[in-house]
Each structure stands twice: as C-alpha cells, then as structure tokens.
Write a protein that binds this DNA or RNA. Sequence first.
DNA 1: AACGATATGTTAGGTTTTCTAACATGGTTT
DNA 2: AAACCATGTTAGAAAACCTAACATATCGTT
Lengths: 135, 135
Amino acid sequence: MSGKEIRRSMPLFPIGTVMQLTELTARQIRYYEEHQLISPARTDGNRRLFSLNDIDSLLEIKDLIDQGVNMAGIKQLFLIKDQQQQANVIQQQAEKAKQELTDEQLRNLLRHELQQAGRFNRSSLRQGDMSRFFH
Amino acid sequence: MSGKEIRRSMPLFPIGTVMQLTELTARQIRYYEEHQLISPARTDGNRRLFSLNDIDSLLEIKDLIDQGVNMAGIKQLFLIKDQQQQANVIQQQAEKAKQELTDEQLRNLLRHELQQAGRFNRSSLRQGDMSRFFH
DNA sequence: AACGATATGTTAGGTTTTCTAACATGGTTT
DNA sequence: AAACCATGTTAGAAAACCTAACATATCGTT
C-alpha cells in the first residue's frame, strides 16, 4: 500500500536502456526532448531517467516520423492527444461527481423525508395542538 | 506482436534505480548476487541490468532479512519456491496435455464409433450376411 | 571472554555511460 | 543556391558503476 508499485510515470530507465527499447539513437532521443516532445527526469548527476510513459511517447514519435510527420506535426498531435485525455479525465470526474452528487442528493432526500416524517409524527403525537392551522 | 512488450524478465534497470526501488545499498545487492540469490544480466560494458523479477526477488530478500533469515535460509526458501513454481508449470502442462489427450481420445472414440456404426450400417444394409456371428 | 563467521560499510583505482556543445551532412523546402 | 531539418560524429568532462580489498558491528559458538 506504500509507494512500492511501479507507476507509468516513474523515472526508471537510463538512456541506454531506452535506446534498446525504442531502437532510437541517443541523439534522436535528446533531439526530441529538445523539441519538448518528452521531458525525462534527471538524476542528481544530471543524467536522464525515462518513464514508461516516456518510452510510449518515443515509440509514438518513431511511428509518426516513419510516416513523414515532422517535429511540429508531432507536437500538435501530442497536444491534441493531451487535450483529449484531459477531456476524458474531466469527463470521468464529472461522471464521478455526478454519481457522488446523486448519492448526496439521495441522502438529502432521505434525511428530508425523515424530518418530514418526524414532524408528522410529532404533530400526530401532539394531538389537539391546532397551531398548524395558524401561520 | 513483436518483442515490444516489457517482460518481467527483461534486463532494464541499472543498479542505481534498483537501489531506490528497493532501498537497498549497492553493496547489499551485489552481496546477494554473490550468494546467487539473484542473477542480473550485464551490459557489454559489464554493468548490471536488473529485471522486474530481480526487483521482486530483492524485495523478498529484504523482507526475509528483516525477519532474521540469513543467506542460506533465503537460498533454501528460493529453491523451494522455484520447485513449487516448477511443479505448478508441470501441473499445468499435465492438465493441458490431459485436456488435449482427452480431446484426442474423444475424437478417436468418435471415429471409432462411426466406424462401428458404419459396420453396423453396412451389415444392416447387407442383410443376410451372418459373418458377424463367426469369429 | 575470545573467536570466527556473517552481513554490511568504506575506500581506491579503473572503466563505462552519459552529458553538453559544436561542427558535419544528406534531404527538403523555399 | 540558400536555408532548414533531422541526424551523425566528435571531444572533453562528469557521473555511475565495477572489482577488490580492508574495516566493523553483530552474532553464535567455544
């Protein structure tokens, strides 16, 4: 339950490993970083550490480059993808919020009804109290 | 479908990353390797590269050491665990083989029965042929 | 209490990997 | 042809890692 699991965003891999995993050269990887397509973390000693997400991005970049897309194009595509993801997150949050709100409302409703019932009971208990006929 | 996915046995992490992930010192990690509790791969330049499995093992080792188990004990525990896993694999293979055999047998049975039925039909068609009463 | 073994720390010297920065180059675009 | 883009190549420096050796604290055993 602590920070043991490996998250997709954890900086784990040195550039050498990433080179093998992606079949990109160090030069290419650094160039793509230079153009802000990725933002690998750094060690205290200034060495790059890549996450699984970074590797995914690099593989996407590689694909797109193979298809003739240039840096600017890839940047735009990534922006749009981010926006979509952002939209998805918001969508999910909204959904969740709605769900929670519905629950909340349900609880309110329930409480309200109980109170109503309570009044009812009270008034029904205090038989003979005609104050309810006056405002 | 190619070798893209990250397997638990892939050598990926340098010792520095593993140190952070496991909170073990380099000295400890190398010592455990010396005692053959792990066998990380090496780069061409002789640097250790650890897999997710290695990291799992190291976390287990850490746990066991915290519980007072020594190298020899851990080695035995790992041996037993390996044997059990091995047994499980064999068990699964047996199960699978049995399944396949059963299917095969079923097919054989079916064929056999059809042949029998065929004979039956034939014989029933060739009414008057009494050879079946002789051996 | 002394001893030896175990697990780990520490240090030293050497090698590999990675870093930045600069310049080189082949293909495109203008 | 000139400029640009993506990448290669090189050089020098720094970080990370390697092995090997020696140091040390904590044990269990004698």
